[in-house]
């Protein structure tokens, strides 16, 4: 089942203004993605861990997500040390493991996970509906916000529809295997999902028109930028500027 497991918490971070969280998560992600020095990256990783701690998230859940996302990183570790041109560190049979390859893999791993943890601490702690409203307030084009909110709204409905179809298939003795029958069944199932989705879209649109939909999506949610937000933005600006200085002034 799809669910936003981390969004329901009561920490300070959960209660912050989502606009602030989006802005800082974006700035931080870019700064770290463009950073290239180990001191910066370790400092960033520490900052991300600190925020995860402050958000008081279920660590098991966080760990599960982090492991899942590190698949591509694993590929880098398998391939890069062996293929990267550079000074050989030691030999694995006929293959040379290079220093540069290992350093680069390590760099990518730290970068990727620092950004990921920061994202989990700030963004995953906000419900998607709230994020949609915040994006609207941040002047992201209305159509795309509207599309995001509607897609999110119907993801769960469509997921139930899918569950119903797969249940029906299983009751009729369907078992997935390596054969044409499996592929055909899945293809028809997806086709049916799309047909049902189109019919549903028609009904949803009619219902919206019946309720006076005029092509504008109103956001009634008001956000307040009060004291905790001011303190948090000051602290985070300092942290991010600090990271920038360490990176570009080549301190430490």
């Amino acid at each position: 089942m799809i669910h936003e497991s981390l969004a329901n918490g009561h920490s300070q971070i959960h209660r912050l203004d989502p606009r602030l969280k989006i802005i800082f998560a974006t700035v931080y992600s870019f700064i770290i993605a463009l950073s290239d020095r180990f001191p910066t990256l370790f400092a960033a990783l520490a900052l991300s861990f600190l925020l995860i701690g402050l958000a008081r998230l279920n660590l098991q859940e966080v760990l599960r997500k982090v492991v899942l996302v590190n698949g591509l990183i694993l590929l880098f570790w398998v391939v890069l040390p062996l293929t990267f041109t550079g000074e050989p560190l030691f030999y694995l049979g006929p293959l040379a493991v290079t220093r540069e390859g290992i350093l680069l893999s390590a760099k990518i791993t730290i970068k990727s996970n620092a950004i990921l943890l920061f994202f989990i601490a700030l963004i995953a702690t906000t419900s998607i509906a709230t994020l949609g409203y915040a994006l609207n307030r941040l002047r992201i084009p209305e159509k795309i916000v509207h599309l995001l909110l509607l897609t999110y709204r119907y993801t769960f409905v469509i997921e139930q529809e899918y569950a119903r179809l797969i249940r029906a298939a299983k009751i009729r003795g369907f078992r997935a295997g390596n054969n044409m029958h499996t592929y055909r069944t899945y293809a028809y199932l997806i086709g049916m999902l799309l047909v049902k989705a189109t019919a549903r879209a028609e009904r949803v649109h009619q219902a919206m028109v019946c309720r006076g939909f005029k092509g504008k999506f109103y956001c009634l949610h008001e956000f307040s930028f009060s004291r905790p937000e001011k303190i948090w933005s000051a602290l985070m600006s300092i942290a991010i500027i600090g990271l920038g200085i360490v990176e570009w002034m080549e301190i430490a």
Partner: peptide, 15 residues
């Protein structure tokens, strides 16, 4: 057409 695109997008997401 937005509901149409949104609901198809949701189905692709699920699929």
């Amino acid at each position: 057409r937005i509901p149409h695109t949104a609901i198809l997008s949701a189905s692709f997401f699920v699929a």
